[in-house]
Simulated scan of single mutants.
Amino acid sequence: MDTTWNTHLDRADRDGRIPAGNGPLYTRRVLPAVTPMTRGSLLEHGMTRTMLARHFTTLTRSVLMLRPGLTPADLAEVPRPVPGASALHRALPYGRGDTPAMFRFDGISRARGHSLIHPGAVVSHWQALGLHGVPHWSDSAPVVLLSSASKVRNRSHSVAAGQHPTLPVFRELPGGLEPVFPDPLFRSLPVVPASTSAAQCLATVMNRSHGWWTPDVPGYRPEDVRAVQLLDSLWQATLLTEDDVLSACRGKVDRHRLETLIAVSDHGAQSPQETILRLVVAPLLPTGVTWTSQVRVSLRDHATILDLACEELRVGLYYDGRHHVSSEQRLTDFEQYQDLRDDGWEVVRVDSDLLNRKRAKLLRQVSCAISRAQGSGAAV
């Protein structure tokens, strides 16, 4: 991975903006350093309405955010320090997640903003899961707040809620719920526990009220593929165990179906695309051997990590994400490929195009690699 990117992650982690998890930093969410503020507090600070219009944008009723992409230099004309501007110096100031699409702002910022005008309401569902470290899928979901106050219960289906992107969804606060407070920048923000949010999110995936595009995977319904992607991310981005998830999902998700999905999930998959790759190539292996994620291979003068490998056959797969397009990374990838071949490995490099649009070619390449490995006398 790019050393600059690693440096940004290390700095954000030192700031306390990456929640604890089992996986490396790049598998977890980076919480935004830039935070929402009420219009009233900014005016009290001495900001003029002209300054607000120029440098801020509306998140929800009476709550503003610094315009995305601003730098400290953009605010040099302002005679007084702008509240929140110091966060622009922080590593990854706007955090790290997915594209918010119709919701305009990332889910964490929206949850924080709504809490300013609904103090005491408990953040739940996808934004809670984001605050607990899962980097994907919460930015394209509505903010769900649990409240004992009488509120309009608008629809939580993501597409319907997206028609009113500045509004949260309210649900009744169940009795006995003990919230936690995981946000280092909004320490008074109550959030449902990680296991509760995981169960809520799995339920919305299974009932199709929240989803995202996934390629076809033979033998799986789209919602099952999404559930496995979510489970894989839970094992990496949080400290939750399988028992935690099963217990929290009692009464919310069919237990037999969930156990089946947990059985095909993987504690080593580090991205949603790696999950898809594993599910797609799973049927290609002969009986008695399996794929394993994140397999470290020691070579003559260095080591490399295969995203997916059958160690018995010495067949390995790399999934090449966006950072593999640089010329420096491509040279490293080529050298690793050659070194692995010299060490007796059959290797296939996979990118998004091969996985999603040229599936037949991918299956042929992996099948041929397996056949060559079997023909070379690798133990099965």
Rank of each mutant, 00 (worst) to 15 (best):
M1W: 01
D2A: 09
T3W: 02
G16L: 05
H45I: 05
M47F: 10
R49G: 05
R54T: 15
R54P: 08
T58F: 00
R61H: 14
R67N: 00
D74R: 12
A76F: 00
G84R: 11
A85T: 10
A87C: 03
H89S: 12
R90D: 10
R90H: 14
M102P: 00
I108G: 01
R110Y: 03
P119K: 02
A121T: 11
H132R: 06
P142C: 08
L146H: 07
S150Y: 08
K151C: 06
R171E: 02
E172M: 05
L177G: 01
F181V: 13
D183C: 15
L189T: 13
V191F: 03
S195P: 01
L202V: 08
W213Q: 14
D216E: 15
P222G: 04
A227I: 13
V228T: 10
D232P: 09
D244S: 10
L246N: 01
K252F: 01
H256D: 12
T260K: 10
L261A: 08
L261V: 12
H267C: 04
G268Q: 08
Q273Y: 03
Q273H: 07
E274S: 09
T275K: 09
T275G: 06
A282K: 15
G288L: 03
G288N: 03
W291K: 14
R300W: 01
D301T: 15
D307W: 08
A309T: 11
E312I: 06
R314K: 15
G316Y: 10
G316M: 11
R322L: 11
R322C: 07
L331K: 09
T332K: 14
D333C: 15
D333Y: 13
D343I: 07
S367H: 12
A378I: 00
